[in-house]
């Protein structure tokens, strides 16, 4: 039984069957990659995990509980954190405040009215956030405005924000999209390190095969809304069905 169990999920947008009959099981403490050509339904599938979309059919179970119909913040509180394709951070706030918000969300839950405490006096939260920034090598930027950082740093900050919540499952939507090679390699190293150090499961959607093959323990190939194969990276590499999905049918 995996930490994330997807059963018979289908989703239709008007005339387009975006997902049909998707079955997927992400095992605990693994890195599970979902790859596929453009329009295969990868992002739609991810959106079904986080509460942005509700599938028409099927079920999505996380840790034995259904996530269907729950709001994004409820799903997050269950232990799923998400990294976006373009980094979503609080650009008007500084780096430390960005991470502190995650720490507050972890400690205080979805809502707590605390209008008279002072942020600077919340020593535990400040320390926790600073430790997180040390872990991702960003402590020297803690007073910097988040908007003024490079794209790579924004991505790094977003991951720090997700990790500060100590999620059970981290979802990554094309974490290296639009990155230069050096930044991509840094991100791979960071993800590897996270995977080794922390007790965490990762599901990753990615175009870049270099990233996928350096990280994933298992790979699911999605094409036209259905999973073609699920296997280890070694077996996926030469798989004829995968080649066909990516390159078109052999002439």
């Amino acid at each position: 039984m995996g930490i994330l169990e997807v059963k018979n999920v289908g989703k239709r947008f008007g005339g387009l069957q975006a997902l049909s009959d998707v079955n997927l099981s992400v095992q605990e403490h693994t890195v599970h990659a979902i790859i596929g050509p453009n329009g295969a339904g990868k992002s739609t599938l991810l959106n079904c995990f986080v509460g942005k979309l509700i599938p028409d059919t099927g079920s999505v179970m996380f840790n034995g509980q259904s996530v269907l119909g729950l709001k994004p913040h409820q799903i997050n509180q269950m232990g799923i954190s998400r990294v976006f394709q373009t980094p979503e951070i609080f650009s008007d706030l500084n780096v430390l405040e960005n991470v502190m918000i995650s720490c507050f969300a972890k400690r205080d839950g979805a809502f707590r009215l605390h209008p008279f405490e002072t942020v600077a006096h919340e020593v535990d939260i400040v320390e926790e956030a600073e430790q997180m920034l040390i872990d991702v090598n960003m402590i020297d930027k803690r007073h910097m405005n988040a908007a003024s950082m490079s794209r790579g740093d924004k991505r790094r900050l977003e991951m720090a924000m997700c990790l500060a919540q100590k999620p059970k499952l981290l979802l990554l939507d094309e974490p290296t999209a639009g990155m230069a090679r050096a930044d991509t390699n840094n991100t791979i190293d960071l993800l590897k390190e996270i995977n080794e150090k922390l007790d965490i499961t990762m599901a990753i959607i990615e175009h870049d095969m270099h990233v996928v093959f350096s990280l994933a323990d298992r790979i699911t190939v999605l094409a036209q809304g259905t999973p073609l194969v699920e296997d280890t990276p070694e077996n996926i590499k030469g798989h004829p069905k995968v080649k066909e999905a990516y390159l078109g049918e052999a002439a």
Binding site: V50, F84, E88, S102, F111, R112, H114, V119
Partner: peptide, 29 residues
């Protein structure tokens, strides 16, 4: 002044910048 400096004030400022991120950080805005 106290509200501005409080965690509540921090959340309010976060709402102004990026509600999506806040929702996916487990906060009910």
């Amino acid at each position: 002044l106290r509200i501005f400096r409080s965690p509540f004030g921090l959340m309010l400022r976060a709402i102004k910048t990026n509600q999506t991120r806040l929702n996916y950080t487990g906060i009910n805005t």
